[in-house]
Amino acid sequence: MLEIRDLHASAGDRQILKGINLTVNAGEVHAIMGPNGSGKSTLAGVLAGRDGLEVTGGTVTFKGQDLLDLEPEERAREGVFLAFQYPVEIPGVNNAYLLKAGLNEVRKHRGEPELDAMDFMTLIRERMALLQMDDTLLSRPVNEGFSGGEKKRNEIFQMAVLEPTLAILDETDSGLDIDALKTVAGGVNALRSPDRSMVVVTHYQRLLNYIVPDFVHVLSGGRIVKSGGKELALELEAKGYGWIETEPATASV
C-alpha cells in the first residue's frame, strides 16, 4: 500500500525529515507518536503534497506508483486522505458543497457516476449518523466558527464520506472531549477494513485504547527511532520519550 524509503524533506532551509522508513500494508493501522516538533505533521504534509515542503531525498510508493509525482488533488482522488491537525476555515464555502464536489471528483476518477443532490444527501445522512454529527455543521461554511472538537469530528466525517484507501489522521484526538473521542474513534473503527490503511498521529495512548494500532512508531528528530506493537504506546505513556531519544535509530518496520 504505502512504502516510504529514506524520506528526507525540508521546509525553507530547515531539514525536518531525515530519513524516514515506513511500510504500511493494506488493512494495517500504524500509530505515530513523538515529541512536539519532531516532524509528524511534516510527514503527513509530505504524503498529502503540501506546498512549501521540499522532498530532498528518498521515495514514497503508494499502490505501486510514485506518490511524490502526483499533484495533491490526484493523491486525494487516488485515495489519500489527510485529517488535518488544524483544519482551515473557508468562509462562504458551504461544508456539504465542498464535500460533494470532492466526492464527485473522487468518483469521476474511479470511473463512477457523479452523485446527484438526492443520492448525496442519503449518503451523508448515513455517515452523519455514524459520527453523530450535528446537522447544522453541514450547511455552515467549512469549519468557520466550528469549535475545536467540531472541526475534528468534521474531518472524520469527511473521511467517512470519501472512503479513502489511506487515511492519515493528524492528532484527531486533540480537542475532542471524552465522549466525542469515543464516538469519533467508533467512526474510525467502523471504517477499518482489509483494504484500507491508516496512519494515526497522536500524543496520547488514550486514543489507542479505542483505535487499536497494529504498530506504533516513535518519530523523533525527523527519524523513526523506535517501532513496536501497541504495547509501545503504553510504555511511552508511562515513561515519556526521554529514554528512547538517546537510542540509535535502528528500528523500522
Binding site: 503540501r50 499533484e71 488533488e73 486525494a76 482551515v88 468562509p91 470532492g102 471528483e105
Partner: peptide, 24 residues
Amino acid sequence: EDQIFYCRQRGLSTEDAVNLIVNG
C-alpha cells in the same frame, strides 16, 4: 494557500478551489 490546499486534499483542482472560494 492553506485553504486551497485543503480543497485540493479533498480532491478539487486548484481552479475549482479558487472558484469555490470566490463564488462563496
